[in-house]
Each structure stands twice: as C-alpha cells, then as structure tokens.
Computed example of a mutant assay.
Amino acid sequence: MRAVTCWRTIIFLAGLAGCGAASAEGGSCPPGSYPVGGKGASGCAPIPGGGGQGANNDLPPMPPRQTGRWHSRYGAIAQSKSTAVAGSSVGRESAEEALTEALEQCGVEGARDCEILLTYSNQCAAWVIPKVEGPGSRTGLAAGKTIRQAKKNAEGLCKAPKGGKCEVFYSACSNPFFEKF
C-alpha cells in the first residue's frame, strides 16, 4: 500500500511539474494571446477574437472619423413669356439664390414677365430647341445626372416641325462640392 501511495505521489508531482511548465510558458504572453514557436524560438500570437493586448472589450468600437462634408449646388433657368430672353444660374449655394439669379439675368434686357422653367441641384441641365420654328414645334428642357443624360432627356421632349432636328441651346452642371476637413 505504501508503494502505491508513493507511486501516486510521484505521478501527482510529475503532473504538477508538467502543468507548471505549461503555465510558465503561457503565463509570459499577455491576455488575449497564446504562446507560439518551437525549439529556440518562442513568441506570442493573438487569439482570434480575443481582442489583443490591452484591448477593452467592454467599449464599443470608435465610429469612423469624417474627412469632409458634401455641399449641394443649385441651378435654375428662367425665360420671358413674351420674348425669347432667358437667364440662368449655375453652382449656387441655395435654391433661392439660383432662382433669384436666373430671374435677374432674364430681366436684364427689360423683360418683366420672366418665369422659372427649371430648377435642379447636384446634376446637369440641358435646353434643346428646334432648328426651325413652326407649327407644332416644342423646346425640350430637362435635368440628368450627367450632361449627356440631361441632353438625352431634353431631346426626348423637343419637337421640330416636319421631322426637323433639335439642337442644344444651353447646358450646364451644378455639381456638389466636397469640403475637406
């Protein structure tokens, strides 16, 4: 019985010695990492999802920091009801500013009956007119994401008499502006 107790004690101590070696090896790595390496080389690697050294998993991650801000830009087109006089504005900071400028430009030659035909923001505008005026003719005025799209949209609205062609009278873009911080 004494021999069995002695063997148990030896096995127990041998087990403790093995645990102590593993504990000493793992104990040299910071929380959230585990020992790596072999003979003559050792180090620590982060435990996947463990947060790494000094990580505070109780705090939410910081949101990304803004690097700037977009500012909208506005444009408008106005025309006199009784004359061919027109006015436009491009790249204004507010819709009101764009409307005011377009109406003022329209009235420069004395027109008192100018009205806004189109307002737009952060896009382009095109005004397409028939090459030849006549019965059934109609101008096309439209906006689009690009100048090409605005022209295409306006051409779809333009109607020239007797199968005539329409041509671009005016086009411009009021693109948004990015302010860097």
Rank of each mutant, 00 (worst) to 15 (best):
Ala21His: 03
Ala22Arg: 02
Ala22His: 01
Ala22Met: 10
Ser23Arg: 03
Ser23Gly: 15
Ser23Phe: 13
Ser23Val: 12
Ala24Ser: 07
Glu25Arg: 14
Glu25Asn: 11
Glu25Ser: 05
Gly26Glu: 04
Gly27His: 04
Gly27Asn: 02
Gly27Lys: 02
Gly27Ser: 05
Gly27Cys: 05
Gly27Glu: 00
Gly27Met: 05
Ser28Arg: 13
Ser28Lys: 10
Ser28Gly: 02
Ser28Met: 09
Cys29Asp: 01
Cys29Lys: 01
Cys29Arg: 00
Cys29Tyr: 01
Cys29Phe: 03
Pro30Met: 08
Pro30Leu: 11
Pro30Arg: 08
Pro30Thr: 07
Pro30Ala: 14
Pro31Arg: 10
Pro31Lys: 09
Ser33Arg: 00
Ser33Glu: 06
Ser33Gln: 03
Ser33Gly: 04
Tyr34Asn: 01
Pro35Lys: 12
Pro35Glu: 06
Pro35Leu: 14
Val36Pro: 01
Val36Gly: 02
Val36Ile: 15
Gly37Met: 12
Gly37Lys: 08
Gly37Ser: 07
Gly38Met: 06
Gly38Leu: 09
Gly38Trp: 11
Lys39Asn: 04
Lys39Arg: 10
Ala41Lys: 14
Ala41Phe: 14
Ala41Thr: 13
Ala41Glu: 13
Ser42Leu: 04
Ser42Phe: 14
Ser42Met: 10
Gly43Leu: 14
Gly43Arg: 12
Gly43Phe: 13
Gly43Trp: 12
Cys44Trp: 09
Cys44Gly: 11
Ala45Trp: 06
Ala45Gly: 00
Ala45Glu: 10
Pro46Asn: 12
Ile47Glu: 08
Ile47Trp: 09
Pro48Val: 14
Pro48Thr: 13
Gly49Asp: 04
Gly49Ser: 09
Gly49His: 08
Gly50Cys: 10
Gly50Leu: 11
Gly50Lys: 04
Gly50Arg: 06
Gly51Ser: 08
Gly51Tyr: 06
Gly51Arg: 05
Gly51Ala: 08
Gly51Lys: 06
Gly51Gln: 05
Gly51Trp: 02
Gly52Met: 07
Gly52Ile: 09
Gly52Phe: 06
Gly52Cys: 10
Gly54Thr: 10
Gly54Leu: 15
Ala55Trp: 12
Ala55Arg: 10
Asn56Cys: 11
Asn56Lys: 11
Asn56Asp: 15
Asn56Trp: 11
Asn57Gly: 14
Asn57Arg: 12
Asp58Pro: 00
Asp58Met: 13
Leu59Ala: 12
Leu59Pro: 00
Pro60Met: 07
Pro60Arg: 10
Pro60Glu: 09
Pro60Tyr: 02
Pro60His: 05
Pro61Gly: 13
Met62Trp: 03
Pro63Tyr: 03
Pro63Phe: 03
Pro63Ser: 06
Pro63Gly: 04
Pro64Trp: 00
Pro64Asn: 02
Arg65Phe: 08
Arg65Trp: 02
Gln66Tyr: 01
Gln66Trp: 02
Gln66Thr: 05
Thr67Asp: 05
Thr67Asn: 04
Thr67Val: 14
Thr67Leu: 12
Thr67Phe: 09
Gly68Arg: 03
Gly68His: 04
Gly68Met: 07
Gly68Asn: 02
Arg69Cys: 05
Arg69Asp: 00
Arg69Lys: 12
Arg69Ile: 13
Arg69Gln: 11
Trp70Arg: 04
His71Tyr: 08
His71Pro: 00
His71Cys: 00
Ser72Met: 00
Ser72Tyr: 00
Ser72His: 10
Ser72Thr: 07
Arg73Asp: 00
Arg73Gly: 01
Arg73His: 04
Arg73Met: 12
